[in-house]
Design a binder for these strands. Sequence first.
DNA 1: GGGATAAAAATAAAGATTTTATAAAGATGG
DNA 2: CCATCTTTATAAAATCTTTATTTTTATCCC
Lengths: 220, 220
Amino acid sequence: MARILAVDDDVAILDMIGAILGKDGHEVTKTGDPTKLELDKINQYDLILLDIMMPGIDGFELCTKIRNLVDCPILFITAKTEEGSLVNGLALGADDYICKPFGVMELRARIGAHLRREKREHFARLAVGRICFNLSEKMMMVDDEQITLTKAEYEICEFLAKNHGQVFSKEQILESVFGFDNESNDNTITTHIKNIRTKLSNYDYMPIKTVWGIGYKWTE
Amino acid sequence: MARILAVDDDVAILDMIGAILGKDGHEVTKTGDPTKLELDKINQYDLILLDIMMPGIDGFELCTKIRNLVDCPILFITAKTEEGSLVNGLALGADDYICKPFGVMELRARIGAHLRREKREHFARLAVGRICFNLSEKMMMVDDEQITLTKAEYEICEFLAKNHGQVFSKEQILESVFGFDNESNDNTITTHIKNIRTKLSNYDYMPIKTVWGIGYKWTE
DNA sequence: GGGATAAAAATAAAGATTTTATAAAGATGG
DNA sequence: CCATCTTTATAAAATCTTTATTTTTATCCC
């Protein structure tokens, strides 16, 4: 289900973590010697568990290094229960801080929550700014008022709004919305965008921005 | 900085949370009566704090309802310390579970971590000195303020900043940014550099240094 | 060291090119 | 036939490139 990296010098704990998470269907990579961690392959994991007090290397330092390389959740699992250590750890870019001895259920629940969130954020947003989508009915609403869009217009809006902020070229939009084998002219997208903008202009709303030379993006 | 909704029937705690987070620059909306919460406006918040045991409504139920409407982080703050309650809460779509009495520093650290993560996930970033690139949005920011660059300007900046410290000739920049088959005049680069510098000078920032007779490099 | 000189870079502004917006006609498919 | 999608042609906008000129920097020679 998820590829998880566990770094801890305590092999007993490592094995336990591996067993628990393995049962939940995750693929767990266990590392007992953090000094041998290959950082150039670190971005293959979906979630990383880190101990703090380890021989040879400081978990905090390691966290900083890893955070500079990846965006995935990093969770400290540690015997250091002081609040200051937690604050420090989270400030370094970690996402959670679990104190040993931890409850098995808590560990599973927290990891589950982090993975779920990752999915959630990656996935669709139904409501973006003044816009709201009803995916099953293929409807778009502005301020709770329904807008009549054609299918192509709707798909473009949904795609851009779901990935709002990000810029997409006309080719990318064509591909994502109408499939990779589509051979339409780029101007098709230009025209659709124009029509969408015309319809939204009735609401004084102009969420699709042109990024010159690159493409379009949905912004608030 | 962030718009935070806090829901708790204990007004003393509510006020304390409001004061703490207000100091951190957040805009806190406090709700002592969860039954009066207007769910249709719930998506205006960046993060939501929820108590579990409240008169009239169950925090778990409320969490489920809210999670169906928004994607933002939801944090339980509760006196229920049993592991089962934590597991249940996280399973319902919450992102964290903080037990009362909580440390002020821990609360701030955890909220900070959740907000930071939200940012992180939405953008592929590259930070060099005062500059931060948002690669997916093709945006460059100085001190968190966006700078309007043309495509060529942006590409040159991204290239130089990614390889900061290293010197590149105009030919190399042309080749790297516009492709090996580009036959433009070298002055094209000079002009672009000039325009970039003009835009950055508004921020008293001059990261592109001239290396006489050789080329340009990005330095802090 | 200092002034003349040449080379490189910065600047400013005009011209060329590219990209996007718009409008309207043609094609497609139910 | 109608709504929608696609294409074409043209206009408009933004950007890129070039040219010409000025300024800066380095070098050479005395």
